[in-house]
Design a protein around this nucleic acid. Structure first.
Lengths: 199, 199
DNA sequence: TAATTTTGTCTAACGGTGTTAAATTATTTA
DNA sequence: TAAATAATTTAACACCGTTAGACAAAATTA
């Protein structure tokens, strides 16, 4: 026979076609533009057909998430395998992670829930009312710098913000991490950065 | 007359009613459940009425974002004013930021684009393929620990991830930061954490 | 006070979304 | 060739943001 398998292969093929079409649309127009009807149009079918292959839109998103994780994993392994010491491996891997986030921006957004809606709040609010305006003052004080726009101040602010925001994001999307560990990370990181301000 | 002002006050009142209704819906059902029709229902009007007060849905979201920033600013100032030294001020402010993120989770999600869709990829993927599985190995090596579930390993992994993910998120939502500064922060932070593994 | 203008509000509709049930067409099996 | 099965589409539902036009209430003017 073998025709059973040919058909199975064909079905598997349209299944990846759906995923590829979805990925293309997202790369071209962003996540909020992705719709079942658009995917259908791209693979030259009608929308309900997709439900023969995926339970619903979320199923497609889940599949893409999985692909994203696998791709990220590969990139990190590649980076790791270029070095021998754990120190170098760690640095290379996190750099690979960083590069993945921007080279495969759409995957990253899906995997870790980074939206793009918010924008330029500074134009709507006086700087003294923003976290930046508030937090940079003691940073400047500690560093002995007067200009709030000094790159060194800016860098340190973003270092603080990154770790806090990163930790917050991770905890919001994947609720369940131990509070104890979070406090530990938060405190360690803040103290570490603060210490680095004075040298 | 004064009636002009009374009417103006009334209009201003329904304007905040709209915002409050929106905020309530989001607190009850999450961002993805927020719709113009639901807001209208809550304030006992019809949906098109809202457009007399806000240009569109995004206008409402923007107003809420602004409110969120102001609230966060206040909390940080409150925390700061409890201390005198910049060191203590910084720690208190970032802790206030942290608390705000969870006490006013909806605001935080809107302000910094943290979605909630993605979840528990570990159940779908073998751990060796995940960033966690890959990155913890050299961490364990450096720390001289064998158990991959040891809390100390976990803590360090999340410290790395937080700073990288935070920095990535910030750069994706607010594109325009200098690459030079980013590399600097990234490298500094990674090296700093790696150094802390060995002590 | 009566007529007119302005304001506030609603109804109805458009084009879009995810999703489902039923009808239809194409393919395989007997 | 006829019957059964599979693949695909059409039509519809309930929702969404948004707009235009109708309508009634209020304020203003004559």
């Amino acid at each position: 026979m073998g025709s059973k398998e040919r058909i199975h292969r064909l079905k598997e093929n349209t299944k990846v076609n759906i995923i590829n079409a979805a990925h293309e649309i997202v790369k071209e127009e962003g996540w909020q533009a992705l719709s079942m009807r658009k995917i259908a149009e791209k693979i030259e079918y009608t929308a309900p057909m997709i439900y023969e292959y995926y339970a619903n839109k979320e199923g497609i998103l889940l599949e893409l998430t999985k692909k994203g994780y696998l791709l990220l994993g590969e990139k990190m392994k590649e980076a790791r395998d270029k070095y021998d010491t754990p120190e170098e491996q760690l640095e290379a891997m996190w750099l690979a992670y960083w590069n993945f986030a921007f080279e495969e921006k759409e995957y990253y957004q899906l995997m870790f829930g980074v939206q793009v809606n918010c924008c330029m709040i500074e134009d709507l609010l006086p700087i003294e009312s923003t976290p930046y305006g508030i937090a940079t003052k003691p940073i400047m004080q500690l560093m002995g710098i007067d200009d709030p726009e000094d790159d060194r101040v800016c860098t340190k602010y973003y270092t603080y913000w990154s770790i806090v925001h990163g930790l917050v994001s991770i905890n919001i999307v994947r609720k369940g991490a131990s509070d104890e560990i979070n406090r530990q990370i938060l405190k360690d990181a803040i103290i570490g950065i603060t210490r680095s301000l004075k040298s």
